[in-house]
Simulated assay, not measured.
Amino acid sequence: MNLTKAAGSTRKIKRIGRGQGSGHGKTATKGGKGQTARKGYNEKRGFEGGQQPLQRRLPKVGFTSKIQKPYVINVEKVKAVAELNEISFESIKSVHKFAKSVEKIKLIGKSAKALASKIKDEKISVSGSKE
């Protein structure tokens, strides 16, 4: 049974601050003077010497809210919605284009509250009313 370590699997430890002959003397691999040369120095993650760190220079990405906001229709601008007899998801779709991903619609404008009695779908709300 061979208990010797494989060739090249171990290295000698780097003995720092043991004189000029070692190659790691004088400044003990810490460079010149200053904050970084002192013992106990701990640089913050991402620190770039006073320059604005990369993670703060780049825009924030990666968050999308789970709360889905309703698609808003101004009845003052889209007169066809105000003229409908019955307001439902399908009837609005027939007079006004919106994306397939829309699940809720909110009607806004001065005359929106007057349309509250015409609404036949729980997915549609009027401004000023609780959802």
Results as ranks from 00 to 15, higher is better:
residue 19 G to N: 04
residue 66 K to R: 14
residue 65 S to G: 13
residue 97 K to W: 09
residue 131 E to R: 10
residue 115 L to V: 03
residue 36 T to A: 15
residue 117 S to N: 12
residue 108 I to F: 03
residue 59 P to S: 08
residue 18 R to M: 09
residue 99 A to R: 05
residue 81 V to T: 05
residue 6 A to E: 14
residue 21 G to N: 06
residue 128 G to W: 07
residue 84 L to T: 07
residue 34 G to W: 00
residue 31 G to C: 03
residue 127 S to M: 07
residue 68 Q to L: 12
residue 84 L to E: 06
residue 14 K to Y: 03
residue 56 R to Y: 13
residue 15 R to F: 04
residue 58 L to H: 01
residue 61 V to N: 08
residue 23 G to D: 02
residue 50 G to W: 02
residue 121 D to I: 03
residue 71 Y to E: 05
residue 96 H to Y: 14
residue 83 E to Q: 13
residue 113 K to F: 07
residue 92 I to K: 02
residue 20 Q to L: 15
residue 81 V to E: 06
residue 106 K to Q: 15
residue 28 A to I: 01
residue 28 A to P: 00
residue 102 V to K: 02
residue 41 Y to N: 04
residue 11 R to K: 07
residue 58 L to E: 06
residue 118 K to H: 01
residue 59 P to N: 08
residue 67 I to L: 07
residue 11 R to E: 07
residue 89 F to T: 02
residue 129 S to L: 12
residue 65 S to T: 11
residue 117 S to I: 15
residue 74 N to T: 10
residue 107 L to K: 00
residue 74 N to D: 15
residue 71 Y to L: 09
residue 92 I to P: 00
residue 58 L to D: 03
residue 84 L to F: 05
residue 31 G to F: 01
residue 13 I to H: 09
residue 40 G to S: 01
residue 8 G to V: 02
residue 65 S to Q: 06
residue 43 E to C: 02
residue 14 K to M: 09
residue 103 E to G: 11
residue 36 T to S: 13
residue 33 K to G: 05
residue 45 R to Q: 14
